[in-house]
């Protein structure tokens, strides 16, 4: 590439311009190589919406042995839902789990609305739930995982200076499922599936230039916006999930 550019333009000014163009092209290639591919599939099956004075709580599904929604992600969604002029009343996750202890611990937490109905029939549980003021429970399942990585960077240092050369890249996949339960009607109000695949690259030409994307942060933002819409917009919200 460098050789061809030099052969075509002989004037020193043109060579400088061409070099800039080449560097620009290389940078543009790197920039286009990194980015986030987002996919969100909301599905709402009732017309229930959150009313004034009602609260929502965000809980993590913790019964998996290998993964669970990160505490940081739960906090991000909770804060996001409460933020802004259109912010919702969000109940603290820890406080909810403590108030309903031991029924929302990983081994006992209801996995479906039938189990939820059974749980609310136990002595004292319904009263406690009502006392919290929580109408909707958002169950978050999923995690952010590194799905691929490659390339490499070599660095060297000597008396004359130091420098690196190479290219490293990696892919992080933030995949989450939000299932929303309505505690008033004891039904599942719907689900939101979010998949944010992010590719980061780090080219090194003398110094490493990190071009990092954060799919988890993007997934948090995207899912929060969808949840806000879900909880405030009645029926007919969003397309249904793909079948088959």
């Amino acid at each position: 590439m460098r050789l061809r550019c030099r052969q075509t333009f002989r004037s020193p000014i043109n060579v400088a311009q061409t070099q800039k163009l080449c560097v620009g092209l290389v940078l543009a290639t790197f920039l286009s190589a990194c980015g986030v591919t987002a996919r969100i599939e909301p599905y709402k099956q009732t017309n229930s919406v959150i009313r004034e004075g009602e609260q929502v709580v965000v809980l993590a599904r913790k019964h998996h042995a290998t993964h669970e929604a990160e505490a940081e992600f739960i906090e991000c969604i909770s804060k996001g839902l409460a933020k802004g002029r259109d912010g919702l009343e969000v109940h603290s996750t820890t406080a909810f789990e403590d108030q309903l202890y031991p029924w929302f611990e990983p081994s006992l937490a209801p996995l479906n609305t039938d189990e939820l109905t059974e749980l609310l029939e136990k002595p004292g549980v319904l009263e406690r739930v009502e006392a919290t003021g929580v109408r909707f429970v958002v169950w978050l399942d999923g995690s952010t995982d590194r799905t691929a990585s490659g390339g490499g960077i070599t660095c060297a240092a000597g008396i004359g200076g130091a420098g690196c050369i190479g290219l490293a890249w990696w892919e992080d996949d933030a995949r989450y499922d939000a299932t929303i339960w309505d505690l008033e009607s004891l039904t599942s109000a719907g689900t939101i599936y979010a998949d944010f695949l992010g590719r980061s690259v780090m080219p090194a030409i003398i110094i490493p230039i990190p071009l990092i994307v954060r799919p988890r942060a993007r997934a948090c933002k995207g899912l929060t916006e969808q949840l806000k819409n879900f909880l405030t917009t009645p029926y007919g919200y969003g397309p249904g999930p793909e079948l088959g």
Binding site: D98, Q99, L100, Y101, P102, P123, G124
Partner: peptide, 8 residues
């Protein structure tokens, strides 16, 4: 601090 259980 451990919460009080909601049990009979």
């Amino acid at each position: 601090e451990f919460p009080t259980p909601v049990v009979e």
